[in-house]
């Protein structure tokens, strides 16, 4: 029962990721795509945590922590490129 609820939550998260992907593909400007990429990263963090929960291994969470701490670097790089400060 509980696991079923988690699987539903994970499916909704995947659906959200696919919707975000639409913006990544069509997004007219570069910032649009970067925003979509940021959303996809955050959904990735959720999915990794869910995999850790379903597989029952705490150690998988370390990969999610790396994304949580470092994912904003990619966004800042593109932002600095846009404002010519790289």
């Amino acid at each position: 029962m509980g696991d079923l609820l988690f699987l539903i939550a994970g499916s909704i998260a995947i659906l959200a990721g696919l919707l975000g992907l639409i913006r990544f593909v069509v997004g007219p400007t570069l910032p649009d795509r970067v925003v979509a990429f940021d959303v996809l990263t955050i959904i990735t963090i959720s999915v990794i945590s869910l995999i850790a929960h379903v597989a029952g291994r705490i150690i998988y969470l370390d990969a999610a922590i790396v994304y949580g701490l470092l994912s904003f670097l990619g966004v800042i790089v593109v932002a600095r490129y846009l404002e010519r400060g790289l």
């Binding site: 998988y60 370390d62 994304y67 470092l70 670097l73 990619g74 790089v77």
Partner: peptide
């Protein structure tokens, strides 16, 4: 089931290769 590799990919792919 390769968390080490996933972590390497996360550390490299999130900032370094892009920059």
């Amino acid at each position: 089931a390769a968390p080490d590799v996933a972590m390497t990919e996360a550390a490299i792919g999130s900032g370094l290769s892009t920059v």
